[in-house]
């Protein structure tokens, strides 16, 4: 009888160890969003999805890379740059209010029209969505390589409470631990 008990105890111990190992490996209730697009429509969609997930108590991490880094520029701020970076900076949108549309750009009329139509329908502006994202603890991670390539400096970015500067390794770590990963 005691042999049977020992075997059972050993089996339970092994099972518990396996459950613990599985729990440690299980993905978190989190969403990782890779944002590459610097278009107004894609950026708005990214923030709406991020906020929806935050409302569901999911941890949300947004990785801003390439064109998306320009949407985090603050037009009121400037930074010291070399000639190449200055030229690049002039060609890139200076902040969220200057983002183009992926469709129906119509030489700059498209974004103005879509912003007006969205306002008419009570939809939040991109800037309001960003503020909500800050309130809900959505984290923004900016790709340092993109910043270097685009000549974008930390000093010219918006003041966002949960922002840091990382590389692709951090992005991979974030999405490998989260249940969902999207790339826009």
């Amino acid at each position: 009888m005691s042999d049977a008990n020992d075997t059972r105890d050993e089996l339970i111990k092994q099972l518990l160890a396996r459950v613990e190992a599985l729990e440690a490996k299980a993905p978190k209730d989190a969403l990782t969003l890779g944002v590459m697009s610097g278009d107004l429509d894609y950026t708005i969609a990214s923030f709406i999805i991020a906020l929806g997930a935050a409302a569901y108590d999911m941890e949300v991490d947004m990785f801003f890379t390439f064109w998306a880094t320009a949407s985090l520029r603050d037009p009121k701020k400037s930074a010291k740059k070399n000639l190449l970076d200055t030229m690049f900076g002039m060609m890139l949108p200076r902040g969220s209010k200057k983002l183009p549309l992926s469709k129906m750009q119509m030489m700059g009329m498209g974004p103005v029209m879509i912003r007006n139509v969205m306002k008419l329908h009570g939809a939040k502006s991109l800037e309001e969505l960003m503020k909500d994202a800050a309130d809900f603890g959505v984290r923004i991670h900016v790709c340092t390589m993109s910043m270097d390539v685009m000549g974008i400096k930390k000093e010219e970015l918006i003041g966002y409470p949960h922002m840091d500067f990382v590389g692709v390794g951090t992005f991979v770590d974030m999405f490998s631990k989260s249940k969902q990963c999207w790339f826009m």
Binding site: I48, L51, G52, A54, A55, M118, H121, A123, K124
Partner: peptide
């Protein structure tokens, strides 16, 4: 009222 998605869900939260 008067706010579009995701406004009402965020207000509820």
């Amino acid at each position: 009222r008067g706010t579009a998605c995701p406004g009402p869900l965020l207000e509820a939260k």
